[in-house]
């Protein structure tokens, strides 16, 4: 009998964790950034699907912390630490942040992908989490999934197929 792997889905502007085995996945990353944090020793994987670079511009009543790079990353780190991860062992990977459409005279909204990437990197540096791999930029969408038992991140896109990192 084949044991079915459990899959945790992370929606847009959402974050979650999975431990020991199974897969954590987020689909259809465009300008959004999928960021993972992994503690190899306790096989704990966390993933956030970040939509916007900064919560400064938020106009919503109840802030969805998973939506903004500057709030989602600390929240994800906290979830991992609560579950026993060590900040020294945690490594981060990220994918996405593409520019789906290009126009002449593109304003800031058009550059949201690269800005998401920059903001995530700045926050990681501030949190002192090592970024060990990234597949960002370009003009195409990505679906990413991390295997909790290995910490390997699979990245799938329509044009370039599947890659691992």
């Amino acid at each position: 009998m084949i044991e079915e792997q459990s899959v945790v889905k992370v929606g847009m502007a959402d974050l979650n964790v999975i431990q020991h085995s199974g897969i954590i996945r987020t689909v259809g990353l465009g300008s959004c950034v999928g960021l993972t944090m992994y503690d190899p020793q306790i096989k704990l994987a966390g993933m956030a699907h970040v939509m916007l670079p900064s919560s400064d511009i938020a106009r919503e009543g109840q802030l969805n912390i998973a939506k903004y790079a500057d709030t989602a990353l600390p929240a994800l780190l906290e979830r991992l630490l609560e579950l026993g991860a060590s900040p020294l062992r945690i490594v981060a990977k990220m994918a996405g942040g593409s520019q789906m459409f290009t126009f002449a005279g593109s304003g800031d909204t058009m550059r949201i992908g690269p800005r998401n990437v920059e903001s995530c990197k700045a926050k990681l540096a501030e949190l002192r989490i090592r970024l060990i791999a990234e597949d960002t930029g370009g003009n195409y969408g990505r679906t990413i999934e991390m295997d909790a038992s290995t910490g390997i991140l699979h990245i799938r896109s329509v044009q370039t197929g599947v890659k691992e990192m």
């Binding site: 847009m12 259809g28 990353l29 465009g30 959004c32 789906m100 459409f101 909204t109 969408g141 679906t143």
Partner: peptide
């Protein structure tokens, strides 16, 4: 663009 619907549409939701 020809790509995943999620990646494309999220752009319109920013």
């Amino acid at each position: 663009a020809m790509d995943m619907a999620g990646a494309i549409l999220s752009f319109g939701l920013l």
